[in-house]
Design a protein around this nucleic acid. Structure first.
Lengths: 111, 111
DNA sequence: TGCCTACCTATAGCCAGTCTACATATAGAC
DNA sequence: GTCTATATGTAGACTGGCTATAGGTAGGCA
């Protein structure tokens, strides 16, 4: 998967994965991998800064927890984040439709 | 349309629009607008450098022409570009399927 | 005792592609 | 002579995903 292609879609992926249940960073990475059938291998250097950014904006909130002697920062969607997720979903639908439409083979403008 | 979302998909759009017939830069911008129902407003600062890059790689070839007193640089797909377009199309299909899959509401991993 | 793997968070700096803003020029309408 | 449409092009800003690195715990294994 070309990394550049993810640009601008990462937020939607993160919010979506957190919709069902709160997760910590490492688990989010695994969830993305699992949900994509292994196609999405997002490095920590992408996920952790993105999560902090989303928290700063107000779409996520986080709490520290210690599980099995390991510290985790667990993120959950805020109401604002849930609303944003809706927006991201329709933006994606629009985007996919537009790009898909232009890429469709054999299209000609007037002939 | 969020500009970042285009990252990594611009090449595919340009190659696709040139599949049917050779076009010059300005016409390519109009074609993208037309084919997308107005959703795609790609600025010249994006298109011209991208076209040059694609030519440098070998996916496009260009020739100068003068039409109605105005100079145009007309781009056409090379064989290599046509091949690349196929690759871009399947990459897009894969990408759209993966992202769409993760974004689908109500997905849960095991429960 | 040491080594390795899995788990877990985090940052500095790189990089490439899209964007904004600007520069340049012809044709035709008004 | 001013405006709009047509037409190409560059410099530099911006931005967000990536690489590389850093730090630490737990548990298996030899």
């Amino acid at each position: 998967m070309n990394p550049d292609a993810l640009r601008g879609h990462m937020d939607a992926l993160l919010l979506s994965v957190l919709e069902g249940e709160p997760l910590h960073g490492y688990a989010i990475i695994e969830a993305l991998q699992a949900r994509s059938g292994g196609a999405l291998n997002v490095p920590t250097g992408t996920v952790y800064p993105a999560l902090r950014r989303l928290e700063r904006i107000g779409y996520l909130a986080s709490e520290w927890a210690t599980v099995g002697g390991r510290k985790r920062r667990t993120y959950r969607l805020t109401d604002s984040g849930r609303k944003q997720l809706e927006g991201e979903r329709s933006a994606w639908a629009e985007f996919a439709s537009v790009i898909g439409g232009v890429l469709r083979p054999g299209v000609r403008q007037s002939g």
